[in-house]
């Protein structure tokens, strides 16, 4: 019974919960996408994940909220511990996992609905009472700094927003259902520099409240916002530790990557 993740009402004041990733391997058919990845995401901290294109960064994020489920020929091995529960153990409620561990994708993915509906729909799905929904929509739009921009057109289509606004809406949508952990897959890479800066500020503002795992191609971004840094290469975690330390000294292969970057 202790394997079943229960949907307690969220207690906002408790320190944010972390995540322990243990010997995770992902195989798609014969192709090894991730191999024996282990890392601890400390609660309330911002961890960044960098690595060359195709090294498995997105794949690792997909492990953490079980997006590999139902993908033909994909197999995930290992464990992910969250509040004492192995997310890959038996009897885990996947919808509950995903409500606690949110995800933001590289491209903004607003639903083709109104701005309000983009946020109220997930709230309704997770059973938030009708009376709370309007307040929560407003609160999460404020968190991402979108409220002032859209307050007078909440009923209009989210697709009419700019790319940066859409991405902040997607972050607001993920935050509205109050996840403990937010996975962000290069959330700013499709945006202009100004919107990118706003997203960085937003990520920094989440520190302590939410545990963040941020995938990025920009080493400077990783250096600026993250407390922890992981370097993934060819599906293996080459290094993981406090960001500043890693930038000062790291195994040769990693240091080289951190010096020269991925070039994209």
């Amino acid at each position: 019974m202790n394997q079943v993740l229960e949907l307690d009402p969220y207690v906002g004041e408790t320190p944010a919960v972390g995540l322990r990733i243990e010997e995770i391997s992902v195989r798609v058919g014969k192709h090894m996408v991730l191999e024996g990845v282990s890392m601890d995401l400390p609660g309330g901290k911002i961890s960044a994940l960098v690595g060359p294109s195709g090294s498995g960064k997105s794949s690792l994020l997909r492990v953490l909220n079980r997006l590999w489920d139902g993908i033909p020929r994909a197999r995930v091995e290992g464990a992910v511990w969250y509040q004492g529960v192995n997310l890959y153990g038996r009897g885990v409620d996947v919808a509950a996992v995903r409500s606690r561990i949110g995800m933001v994708f590289q491209r903004p993915t607003p639903f083709p609905k109104s701005i309000v509906q983009n946020i109220s729909l997930p709230l309704a799905v997770h059973g938030y009472p009708r009376s709370e929904i309007a307040d929560r929509v407003q609160a999460s739009l404020k968190t991402v700094g979108l409220w002032d921009e859209v307050a007078n057109r909440l009923g209009t289509s989210a697709l009419a927003l700019s790319g940066g606004q859409q991405q902040r809406l997607c972050i607001a949508r993920a935050l509205a259902i109050q996840p403990d952990i937010l996975l962000m897959d290069e959330p700013a890479s499709a945006l202009d520099p100004k919107s990118r800066g706003r997203i960085d500020d937003l990520i920094l503002s989440l520190r302590d409240a939410v545990t963040v795992l941020l995938v990025t191609h920009h080493l400077e971004e990783a250096e600026r916002v993250s407390d922890r840094l992981g370097v993934l290469m060819d599906g293996r975690l080459q290094a993981f530790g406090p960001t500043q330390e890693l930038f000062r000294s790291a195994p040769e292969k990693v240091a080289q990557y951190l010096r020269h970057g991925s070039g994209n």
Binding site: R98, S99, M103, L121, P122, V125, H126, A174
Partner: peptide, 24 residues
């Protein structure tokens, strides 16, 4: 990507069909 983000938000398949796929 729309379906993926609905899944990532914890939508069931039935909910995804009804709220996102059906209208379009």
């Amino acid at each position: 990507h729309l379906i993926d983000s609905a899944r990532a938000l914890g939508f069931s398949r039935a909910r995804t069909i009804w709220s996102l796929m059906w209208p379009s």
